[in-house]
Structures are given as structure tokens and as C-alpha cells.
Write a protein that binds this DNA or RNA. Structure first.
Length: 424
DNA sequence: ATGCTCCTGCGAA
DNA sequence: CTAACGTTCGCAGGAGCAT
């Protein structure tokens, strides 16, 4: 049963180019939060040897030499364009799994095998025309192979044009192709596992494909064993149904500048708990406990280091912002120590369950519960309609010295009228 | 021996 | 001038605990 993996090219950079065509053909990077690391690179930047995750301060010299344009990440813009891409892609197959912000799997089971490559060319043209984002497509019988086919499409390895269909490859050709790809390119094979495979004499995808599954399971795990099976065309990872609710919700951020006081840390934690509670309600879930963590800057090796976390159980699973913020800030007071420069904090909601299941067993405090539900509903709707952060709880603070740096952000072209540039 | 919960490591995007 | 390095999610497996 053939699957397609559709992946947007250099997604964040492509999004920026949609609204700023002057970036076309130029070396462009998009930086992570706090303008810290390169998280998206145009082809021109990749050609200069810039690696994924490279810290910006190490790139500045090279950037000056080659006029690299660096932009802060504009997540609101990327999420909006992603939604447009995904909804169009959904029309091309009865079954879609959105795997990440820039890629999804499509079930192509019902189509004639020899028409798939053409069909996927149509997909590419449609997305490019309707949204302006370039995509590549990999076609194969398992998710792992489809990911690999996509890699080949992106690199132009199998003499294709943005589409690579492993189903059209003879066995000999496939083996030769796999033998030319480093094993680390395989989905699920990261840095650590690559290194260990190397010591076992497995360097290429082909060598991993023909490896003994039992030995792989013994040396690594069932996950890697599944990967080997998938490389051989045996599906082990199913297409997931849409809308499976998350099991945990994390909101954390590095600070724009270090923070030492309990007061300011508390503001950040209250803010993150507020964001996490919003996500929680959007999922229709409640959380059984709240984990808070704080940490100093691990890269500043000379400075005294401290990191700690604590899990605060909720009296009753909740989705109420006030209750979750209280739990989080109370936990913070227990783990906070004076005399450190903190660089990051975060809030993790754990033990998530569907809200309906909880309400059924609820017997105390009905009135209180209903009142808080009403308040949360109002809060969410005001924030949805008036813009994010219009209504927030006072504990989050106003000054927010800890807020992240984003000096190079593009306008929110698709979601804020105020930010649209005026034509000249 | 068995079944949990918690924590850590790994991978991915 | 200096110092400046992301976030969020799932899974597996081991440790530690209770039964």
C-alpha cells in the first residue's frame, strides 16, 4: 500500500519568501527563539556549509562575508501557512496524517501505481500555485521508506523532479541507491545510533537494510528493529488517526536575559502555565499534575549551575488557568534558590485525560466548577478575538524582562492587519 | 514474579 | 566592548517501589 510523504522545502525560509520575494535566490536563515540557532536554511546557506542548529553568534562572521539574511522565527506566520498547505493536501487523499508543521503522510492506496508520480507532481504544482510553498514528495510502501524517498527527491538522487517513487525502482537500482546514502539519513537513526552502527561496520542504508533484525534488537531496541523491517518494505508504523490528544503539554522558553529573583521567575512560570492551560483546554483535556523546572545557563560553564524540577499533583485534575498557575508557582517556591542567574524555566502539564471522563466522576463543588469553566471560556474567547495575550492574569507581570529576544522578526502578514506593510 | 510510576536517553522537526 | 547555543512531543527501558 503506497504512502506519500509530502515535505515543504526549507519551510520557514519558504514562508518568509512568500511575503518577501526579495529573499528569493539569496542566502537566508531563520533563527530559533531568542535568535539563538539556525533552524531553517535556504539552499544558498546550506551550500555555504551552515549546519542545522548552529548558534548564530558563531555564524555572524560568515554571514557578514556572504550577506546572509537572518530572521527571527515568526511562528504565527508559519502555523498559518502550514494550515493552508495541510488542508489542500487533505483533498488529495482520503487519509492524511499531519506529522509536523511542514510535512504529512498521505495514503495513496487506491491509486494505480504507475500514475502516482504524476499525481504527486500535480500536488506539488497545486501547493506552489495556491500557497507559494515548494514541496517534495517521497512515495514508498512504509513510512520509513517514504521518508527516505523524500530525502532522495530533495537531493535529486533518483533523477527525479521533486518526486521520488521507490515503487518504480528495480531491486538492483534500489540497492545501489541505498548503498550511496549514509545510515544517519534514515528516520529514527540519530547521532548516537549512527555512531554505534558505525562501530558495527554498518555505514550505509543498504547495510542497515540487510542487517540481522535480531542482532539489531539485541544491540539497540525494538524501535530500531522496526526501522530495519520498514526498510525492507514491511510496514510496522501505522498511519495514525487524526486528533489523538496529547499526553503532556510543555511550555518553556529561554530568557532574553538572565533572571535571579523569585518574583521574575514567578512571572515567567505563571505566563507559561497560562499558555499551557490554553493548549490544554483546546485539546479538551485536564491535567492531573504540574511539573515546574528552572535552570541556569549550561553554556556559561564558569557560572554556578543549578537546575531542579518538581511535580505538583492537583487536588483534582483541572484545566483552570488559576488553579494550574497556583500549582506551578507554589512548586517554584519550593525549588527556587537565591544566588543563581537563571536562563530558562518551564511548565509541563502531565497526566492528561479527556475532560468528559473526569466530569462524570465529579461530585463535589459543582457550582465552583461551573463558574471557573465559564470564566475560562470568556478568557479564551477574548484572547482568540482580540489577539493573543489581550487578557492575562496579573501574576504574569507587565515588564517581562525575561521575554525572549526576537530582533529580526518579519510582520504577521496573514493574521494582523496592523502589521501589513503599506505599498509604496 | 508482576505491575505500577518516575526518570532518563534518544530521536524528530 | 563582550557575550551571545531552541522547543515540544512520544517512546522505550531501567530503577525503584509496592504488592
Amino acid at each position: 500500500m503506497p504512502l506519500a510523504l509530502v515535505d515543504c522545502n526549507n519551510f520557514y525560509v519558504s514562508c518568509e519568501r512568500v511575503f518577501n520575494p526579495k529573499l528569493e535566490g539569496k542566502p537566508v536563515v531563520v533563527l530559533s527563539n531568542n535568535d539563538g540557532c539556525a533552524v531553517a536554511r535556504s539552499n544558498e546557506v546550506k551550500a555555504l556549509g551552515v549546519k542545522m542548529g548552529e548558534p548564530w553568534f558563531k555564524l555572524e562572521k560568515l554571514a557578514k562575508q556572504h550577506d546572509i539574511i537572518a530572521l527571527s522565527s515568526n511562528y504565527t506566520l508559519y502555523a498559518d501557512l502550514s494550515a493552508r498547505v495541510m488542508s489542500i493536501l487533505a483533498t488529495f487523499s482520503p487519509k492524511q496524517e499531519v506529522y509536523s508543521i511542514d510535512e504529512c503522510f498521505l495514503d495513496l492506496g487506491g491509486f494505480a501505481p504507475d500514475t502516482l508520480a504524476d499525481y504527486c507532481q500535480t500536488i506539488r504544482k497545486t501547493i506552489k500555485r495556491n500557497v507559494g510553498i515548494p514541496v517534495c514528495v517521497g512515495i514508498a510502501d512504509t513510512k520509513t521508506l517514504a521518508k527516505l524517498a523524500n530525502h532522495c527527491a530533495k537531493k535529486g538522487l533518483a533523477g527525479n523532479n521533486g518526486v521520488c517513487d521507490f515503487g518504480r525502482l528495480a531491486e538492483v537500482e534500489r540497492s545501489r541507491l541505498f548503498a550511496s546514502i549514509p545510515v544517519g539519513e534514515v528516520w529514527g537513526i540519530g547521532r548516537k545510533i549512527s555512531e554505534k552502527l558505525l562501530t558495527m561496520g554498518i555505514q550505509t542504508v543498504e547495510e542497515l537494510r540487510i542487517a540481522n533484525p535480531n542482532k539489531i534488537r539485541q544491540q539497540f531496541s525494538v524501535v530500531v528493529e522496526r526501522t530495519v523491517k520498514e526498510l525492507n518494505g514491511i510496514p510496522c508504523i501505522e498511519l495514525e488517526d487524526v486528533g489523538t490528544p496529547r499526553q503532556q503539554i510543555m511550555v518553556s522558553r529561554s530568557f532574553g536575559q538572565e533572571v535571579s529573583s523569585l518574583g521574575e521567575l514567578s512571572e515567567s512560570v505563571a505566563y507559561f502555565a497560562t499558555r499551557a492551560a490554553e493548549k490544554l483546554r483546546k485539546d479538551g483535556s485536564v491535567a492531573a499534575s504540574v511539573c515546574v523546572f528552572i535552570q541556569t545557563n549550561p553554556f556559561k560553564e564558569k557560572a554556578p549551575q543549578y537546575q531542579r524540577s518538581i511535580v505538583v499533583p492537583m487536588v483534582q485534575p483541572a484545566d483552570d488557568t488559576v488553579a494550574l498557575v497556583n500549582a506551578a508557582t507554589q512548586g517554584l517556591r519550593e525549588i527556587y534558590r537565591m544566588g543563581f542567574g537563571y536562563k530558562k524555566s518551564g511548565v509541563l502539564l502531565m497526566g492528561l485525560q479527556p475532560k468528559e471522563m473526569i466530569q462524570a466522576t465529579l461530585f463535589d463543588n459543582q457550582a465552583e466548577q461551573a463558574k471557573s469553566a465559564k470564566l475560562m471560556k470568556v478568557m479564551d474567547s477574548i484572547n482568540r478575538n482580540m489577539g493573543h495575550g489581550s487578557l492575562t492574569i496579573a501574576a504574569s507581570g507587565i515588564r517581562q524582562r525575561w521575554a525572549m529576544r526576537r530582533d529580526r522578526k518579519s510582520p504577521n502578514y496573514t493574521t494582523e492587519w496592523d502589521e501589513l506593510p503599506i505599498a509604496e
